[in-house]
Design a binder for these strands. Structure first.
Lengths: 208, 208
DNA sequence: TCGATAACCATACGGCCATACGATTATCGG
DNA sequence: CCGATAATCGTATGGCCGTATGGTTATCGA
């Protein structure tokens, strides 16, 4: 055998370099050369780990997206164990995804840039679709729980409500990012809270 | 003086060539040379009418967007004069913007491609913001009318409801386009109808 | 009719970028 | 300790694209 390296760690290193570039200079500014420089490695090594630029970008996207997914899930879990009202749990977790301050604006820029490419790139679209499916499932589960404890109208269609809520979230993400003057942080927060208030219309009757 | 040409018509001709290219090959496939070919003119003439490729793309976007805006407005007006319920008028007009069949899918592709660029391109972002402001104003007006005739809860915040409704619309547009398998035409229509049903909760008490 | 001028064209240029390629270096197994 | 092999590097290459440039053509006004 010979020299060994941590494949996954290297790929992650490149993915994060891509992310930084997208966040600071925009998607179009991402070149293989710049990415290599940002990651502190050579162009050749990037090629060693990714067969093509497209693969590199796709990996960067899925990496970023999975991290975000995990964070939101963890957020929700933590709030859940603290025994909060489901509506409040979701509001907290989803608010994290809106560009309400500089940090989250950066994250949104990356997310939105890749989302924009999903329109023309089937592989990105598929990855995005998978991730959205996870989020919808999470929301549907939360709504189902809400029914059980009385927060949600028991006749509501969980899947439909979840799909619409995710649409609101993504629409707000875009509007708040591209129109910060019109869609201020408060307006965005209010819009999201308003959507949740329309789904979670009842009082929780559980006691602990 | 000398030879004359219809400036606006030429610029429109180019804009529509861009649109066709985006719809059929995707945003990245738009080059000045291809656009010229698609428009049936020379590269030099494109340059004659647009100082840079960026200007060309921006014009193509605003052109397409304004046309769509006009169409939606006209739709709504027509339904209005037919004396329909406001909720139904809006549903009809906004449904037109979702990618529910091949024709509307094409239109959405163009719209979404440019929307994706708004993230990194301030000029596109500004044009998009202006157009969104128009749509929000139109929605707010409709909601205000709804209050007067009893279709809408009089305590509702018109601007906030309008902003959220537009967010739903744009989120659905994206999801329905990139995830046709999950967000079917029926599911999208239902989600939009659901949103409107949450805004227009009352009965119209006008008679004519 | 004619020349000035705008419309229009064809091509050249310079730069950038993704990818290909060959060389070099480090390290694991024996 | 050594050689096989993976990791890493540096550079070359071929193509494409936006823009610059110079020339040609048609038409309007006088």
């Amino acid at each position: 055998m010979a020299r060994t390296a941590d494949h996954d760690a290297r790929r992650q290193q490149v993915a994060e370099a891509v992310e930084r570039l997208v966040a600071s200079e925009g998607y179009d500014a991402v070149t293989v050369a710049k990415t290599a420089a940002a990651a502190g490695i050579s162009v050749g090594l990037v090629q060693h780990y990714f067969p093509s630029k497209d693969d590199m970008l796709l990996h960067a996207f899925t990496h970023a997206r999975e991290r975000t997914e995990r964070r939101v899930l963890a957020d929700a879990d933590r709030a859940d164990q603290a025994g909060a009202r489901i509506e409040q749990i979701l509001l907290g977790a989803l608010t994290e995804l809106l560009p309400l301050d500089e940090r989250r604006r950066r994250e949104c820029r990356v997310e939105l840039a890749f989302t924009g490419r999903a329109v023309d790139n089937p592989r990105v679209a598929e990855a995005l679709g998978r991730s959205n499916a996870h989020l919808r499932a999470m929301l549907a589960r939360a709504i189902r729980n809400g029914k059980e404890c009385g927060e949600v109208d028991p006749t509501a269609d969980e899947e439909a409500e979840a799909a619409r809520t995710l649409a609101v979230l993504d629409g707000l993400k875009l509007h708040a990012y591209t129109e910060p003057a019109t869609m201020t942080a408060d307006a965005s927060r209010a819009a999201l809270a308003g959507e949740l208030a329309r789904v979670f219309t009842g009082e929780c009757h559980h006691r602990d």
